[in-house]
């Protein structure tokens, strides 16, 4: 048992020194990989959210029976397009979507349409995230009480104003956890972009171990770096949720401690009555 313990200590010590060696050797590559991973994940999640918001809104468009037929047709066609988009990009692996866009488009268009690696990676991850977010946003909008829409309509807001001022801010608050999920999934899953040669963290790992065979120590370092990135993002997202909720308590907007602190039962008074006059 004693020797096992010594062995284990030895192993950890060796792992430690391997990691130190690796880090001295290739820290810039790993850090750059992590940076590219993070940038791709954050930008693509943000763009994906915008796509999702847009598609989510399109899916909640409605018309009434006596609207013009063309309006009905346009709305129905738009919704059908959105559904197809969502099903296709949610229903296929991102790694193959990358292949389709990077290799498939030039193949099919005789090189007329081709993207460089970086553009292709950003497009694939964004569009993929957008498909997931479209469903999240749709669900988020549907979960907002109908009374919110009616309250907005009753003071004369149109569909667009109602969405922008009332429904979407509440939807956004409710789907932050889901946005966080997508961001964290993207940080990890952008690793499949190695298939088209996008140099992110996983690619840095692969290229290093190809050269030195320090496979496991490199995996430990890569793993830790993924974990740090996702953990930091989790914390930041929680903070954002908190910020959106605003303070738990409010202060009465009065310096007169006697006035209206109960806010009830002191109405109407003769003085107030006159103030109604417009």
């Amino acid at each position: 048992m004693g020797s096992e313990a010594t062995n284990f200590t030895d192993i950890i010590a060796k792992l430690g020194s391997d990691i130190v060696k690796l880090w001295q050797d290739a820290a810039p590559q790993y850090l750059k990989g992590a940076g590219d991973t993070l940038l791709l994940a954050v930008v693509a999640t943000a763009v994906g959210c915008l796509i999702g918001l847009y598609c989510g809104i399109l899916q909640t468009l409605s018309y009434s029976k006596n609207d013009f037929w063309l309006k009905k047709a346009v709305i129905n066609t738009t919704k059908a397009f959105v559904r197809v988009y969502v099903e296709v990009f949610r229903g296929t692996p991102m790694i193959l979507q990358a292949v389709f866009i990077f290799f498939g488009l030039p193949y099919l268009t005789g090189n007329a349409l081709r993207f460089d690696v970086i553009t292709a990676a950003y497009i694939v991850v964004s569009v993929n995230t957008g498909a997931y977010m479209a469903e999240t946003v749709r669900g988020g909008i549907l979960s907002i009480d109908k009374g919110q829409t009616e309250g907005a309509m009753a003071i004369g807001m149109n569909h667009f104003q109602t969405m922008v001022k009332v429904i979407l801010p509440q939807t956004l608050r409710n789907i932050i956890p889901q946005i966080g999920n997508n961001l964290i999934i993207n940080i990890k899953d952008t690793s499949v972009m190695f298939i088209i040669g996008y140099a992110e963290l996983f690619a840095a790992h692969k290229s290093y171990v190809g050269a030195t065979y320090l496979y496991f120590p490199s995996a430990v370092v890569t793993m830790a770096m993924y974990l740090i990135m996702t953990a930091v993002c989790s914390v930041l997202l929680r903070l954002w949720e908190h910020l959106m909720d605003g303070p738990e308590n409010f202060n009465l907007a009065t310096t007169d401690s006697l006035a209206l602190t109960s806010g009830m039962n002191n109405y109407p008074s003769g003085k107030r009555r006159k103030r109604w006059a417009r």
Partner: peptide, 20 residues
């Protein structure tokens, strides 16, 4: 309808204040 509705106020049983 929106323009007309802005002239006709409505108060609901369930308040419908904007929660955000």
């Amino acid at each position: 309808p929106p323009k007309y509705r802005s002239k006709v106020g409505m108060v609901f049983q369930s308040f419908n204040l904007f929660n955000n």
